[in-house]
Design a protein around this nucleic acid. Structure first.
Lengths: 187, 187
DNA sequence: GTCTATAGAACGATAGAC
DNA sequence: GTCTATCGTTCTATAGAC
């Protein structure tokens, strides 16, 4: 049994069935597996959720890092914004999980939101910035993520369409338009 | 049996137990009611969810309208932003429901996100504005709401603290800082 | 390490007495 | 209009054979 396969299939299933209908029974049916086998590898449902969160974070991080190194210098924040949007549009199941995991009782408190932020923080903040700046940037980052989720929930998950380029530009401009951070990666 | 009491209690219960643990059994236990009695008034679980969504929207609308008429003229958008944040901080159960209902299989598609937007749209948009402007403003509105949800999820629901005034100002400034809409209510 | 079988509880929803 | 009792199903999770 491939552990990662379980996570991928469960994410997919969750998008289709929503939270309350994504049961162990449904998961093993989709995997063509037995409950006993699944519980041999995962101690309970929470562990599956936990690994879905880890997997989602890893996938996003990997994707953003690729985007970050692929193109160089100018408009780095635009490239990152665009990459994040494109990634979540392509991986709807991850988008849905990120949006709906907050309401689930199977995800323990600690995992929930902050881990995702930390990653963006690393991309956007350097060590030498002062506390006040960091706090405000964290707020802005939180706002940024929330905006992406809400907009993509509406456009992609409800209406099934991808954002137009001008919309991506609008989103980027709203948050990072004339931001000093734009210059951070221009060195 | 008070219909509205069921909705209020269920919202409260949901914040504590999360989506998958908010069952009919838990609801009737909290209400000190019998299942038969609950099902005499609500045809199924979806109907309860539907009315929670309606109730949440009504409460927000009522609250924003009060804020809108109470204070006059200048900085209307700041007052609305602040009122929305304060309302959701005070009514955590509504905040949690708005955040987590997207992942639920008991809320039918149609209700989901748009209805909440329509209300803000009415507040922010007038009839005579052109389509392009409206579309962009709708995107911005969506971003605005998503930001509020994400920020308050983190600050209030996870960390249990209210936003500081400077944070509210930051949020307002990010979206409506030097916006022509500021003048809309100054007539 | 996968299976079948099933425990044991909880689920949404209903029937019928009062 | 509220109750008790319970239907039939589904749930998470486990035991034990292979």
């Amino acid at each position: 049994m491939d552990r990662k396969e379980v996570i991928k299939i469960t994410l997919e299933l969750m998008k289709e069935k929503k939270l309350e209908k994504t049961t162990i029974g449904e998961i093993v049916k989709r995997l063509d597996l037995s409950p006993g086998s699944l519980y041999y590898h995962f101690k309970n449902k929470s562990e599956i959720y936990k690994e879905m969160a880890d997997y989602s974070l890893e996938e996003i991080t990997r994707n953003l890092n690729e985007a970050r190194t692929a193109e160089s210098n100018k408009n780095r924040l635009f490239i990152l914004t665009r990459a994040l949007i494109k990634f979540l549009e392509e991986r709807e199941e991850i988008l849905f999980f990120l949006i709906s995991m907050k309401g689930s009782c199977y995800l323990e408190e600690e995992i929930k939101s902050q881990d995702f932020l930390i990653n963006f923080k690393n991309i956007l903040l350097t060590e030498q910035q002062d506390m006040n700046y960091k706090k405000r940037m964290l707020l802005k980052l939180n706002m940024f993520l929330g905006s992406i989720y809400e907009v993509l929930y509406d456009s992609k998950l409800v209406n099934g369409r991808n954002l137009a380029e001008y919309e991506i530009r609008d989103i980027h401009a709203s948050f990072w338009g004339n931001e000093i951070l734009d210059t951070k990666y221009n060195n």
